[in-house]
Design a protein around this nucleic acid. Sequence first.
DNA 1: ACAATGAATGAAGAGCTGTTCATGTGTTCC
DNA 2: GGAACACATGAACAGCTCTTCATTCATTGT
Lengths: 132, 132
Amino acid sequence: MGHGADAATTATPRERLDTAGAADVAATLQALATPSRLYILARLQEGPCAAGELAGAVGMEQSACSHQLRLLRNLGLVTGERRGRSIVYSLYDNHVAELLEQALYHVEHLRLGLHDTPAEAVAEAAEPAAAR
Amino acid sequence: MGHGADAATTATPRERLDTAGAADVAATLQALATPSRLYILARLQEGPCAAGELAGAVGMEQSACSHQLRLLRNLGLVTGERRGRSIVYSLYDNHVAELLEQALYHVEHLRLGLHDTPAEAVAEAAEPAAAR
DNA sequence: ACAATGAATGAAGAGCTGTTCATGTGTTCC
DNA sequence: GGAACACATGAACAGCTCTTCATTCATTGT
């Protein structure tokens, strides 16, 4: 499964951005920008899961989870299929799974490789305006 | 430079998430969740650039750009080095470049592969509450 | 048809985000 | 030293996001 030489791979990121629409790209990537959604996607990466069970697995209220699932569904990252009275959710396809995995990979390494930036900086950036 | 078998690669995403701290991961990934920051990172991927020039290149006001640069700096994604009266920014390292590139790769393919989700859905998700 | 379950939806509120405007800090050149 | 330039910083505000509460819809079982 090589990410080798696609048509798009020859272009610079900046060109690819306007091609795809920076706003759309940002919107899609924002799916990974919240702990709740990250947990949902990570849980679904282990396999399909009914909505209610999912909410429990990631420690959210049913309603909150449903709202986020709608978002992820609208972005095309997950799909829900009715099965009895439950609705079973899954990751949309492999690109979602890989996107998640590689994001984690790079973030892990970024967080470990800091030498300029003391750990505070990340914590500081993570906490918006609290804890001062 | 293979992403082969790291220590972390054996764990499931969910485990990796709590290990790294879901909030921190989310905070880092949110750097890619906005058009302005995406443009900044994409421009820097082409090579180092002074702050003022950068602002012009991505079509932002100097101040707005500086604010976002601070964010990216705090997250450890970019670094700034003084050179004369300018401050030249660069991507922190290869992980940032690859994160950007792979994010674009997957988003491009996700946006093309939609079959359940009509194009409206993405547009709808991109536009928060406007255009109704 | 009715009650019960599982999930989606809508409204509302607290909090965060990104931009702008105004000002401050550091650097170069005269 | 003082003017000009390059950038950072702080305050403030509009807008978006996420959650909670209440309600509605769909499906199953009696």
